[in-house]
Amino acid sequence: MRTRLRICKTKMRFADQAAAQVVSAHYDQLVRPYRCDRCGAWHLTSRRKGKRIARPAASAPE
């Protein structure tokens, strides 16, 4: 699903995923960063349905 331009314009923009995650930690509600297909920046969303959640990086075997 493509982000609507009107929605993109009203959301905060972050230069990278790390910056978005820092801000998302301050919210009471669960929010996650995603790359916008309109502007290429990172936004925050609380939507979970139909969104892929990145798996944590696998640790190297010892």
Rank of each mutant, 00 (worst) to 15 (best):
R2E: 15
K9G: 02
V22F: 05
R6P: 05
P56F: 05
I7E: 14
T45K: 08
V23W: 04
L30F: 11
R48C: 06
V23N: 03
E62L: 07
C36Q: 08
I7Y: 12
R32W: 05
H26R: 15
R32Y: 03
H43W: 05
H43C: 01
R38T: 10
V23R: 07
S24Y: 01
T3L: 14
Y34V: 00
Q29E: 13
R55W: 03
P33D: 07
R47V: 09
I7A: 11
A25C: 12
V22H: 09
L5S: 11
C39E: 10
A20N: 03
S24D: 04
A58L: 12
K11L: 11
S59Q: 10
A15E: 15
C8S: 14
P33K: 03
P61W: 04
Y34A: 02
R47T: 07
T45S: 14
G50N: 12
G40W: 10
H43L: 02
A15G: 05
F14I: 11
C8H: 09
H26T: 15
P33W: 02
P61L: 03
R13V: 03
R35L: 06
L30P: 15
A54S: 11
R35A: 06
K11I: 00
A19T: 10
A25V: 09
Y27V: 15
D16C: 04
H26G: 10
P56S: 11
Y34H: 04
A54T: 07
D28F: 14
I53Y: 08
V31Q: 08
D37F: 04
A41L: 05
S46A: 15
I7M: 14
D28W: 14
R47H: 03
R2D: 14
K49F: 10
W42D: 00
V31W: 06
K11G: 02
C39L: 08
T3W: 07
R55M: 12
P56V: 13
G40A: 10
